[in-house]
Design a protein around this nucleic acid. Sequence first.
DNA 1: CGCTAGTCCTGTCTGC
DNA 2: TGCAGACAGGACTAGC
Length: 268
Amino acid sequence: MPELPEVETIVRALQVNRGASIKNIDIRRKDILRLQEYEVEELHGRTIKNICRRGKFLVFEPGRDLNLIFHLGMSGRFYMLTAAREPVEKHIHVIVHLDNDTNLIYQDTRRFGGVWLVRDREHFFRHMGREPLSTSFTAAYLGDILKQRKAPVKNLLLNQHLISGIGNIYADEALFAAGIRPNRPGGSLSQQEIKKLHRSIRKVLRQGIELRGTTFRDYRDAFNESGGFQNYLKVYGRYNQPCPQCGNLIQRIRLAGRSTHFCANCQH
DNA sequence: CGCTAGTCCTGTCTGC
DNA sequence: TGCAGACAGGACTAGC
């Protein structure tokens, strides 16, 4: 569920916990641990030096060689709760007890997400594509990863090894903003279309962050509250509704196994 | 190597 | 009201 803007929103709110120490980590469901390169107990008593995001991953750094990494999958949530408040919801898999009267709650109904206890972060992320909001993500780079490719441009945007952080909602929205049909082969885009798509990707991701993410169903921020971008979606989830630009009905097809929304009149 | 379809899970909504 | 089937912000893998 959560894409780059949602995870970024959570990470920014979590920054208030920098400098706090981990009292205890309660892993309620062991199989949520996808990789364990060190014992959980090594984290106890450690100070959280930094909290950041890489693609759709949420990264805590309680030590140089101790990274605590979460992925929220489709239905994951990560929020703060005052220590006195006992969480009562279902599917809570991890609780991080901090020494600043805060508990961090990791919840994931469908368990497509997971937790990684990783020593070498660079190595863990070695296959990740460039960050779309970084200066390294240029129109030339986008052109490089699309050229010669026969796969639909949307599929390529969703490929985390090429670009990290774009998911189903922002892929559809970026392609609408660029006026490009999602099923166009990556290699068929002109230089001008690549430039337009590059700008559109960055624009919709920035808007998503500004509006604190998109809550379609499950997503909640670090305060367990909904985002705001769902009110500004132009095509995603708007099948058979009028295009906000031209009034034609929004079409829906299936690409890479995912629902894909576009306007046949505005996107070519 | 590039690409697609199937798979992992639980919950909710739709239509009969 | 019950029940089957479709569908959901993701990403690995097996196989063509």
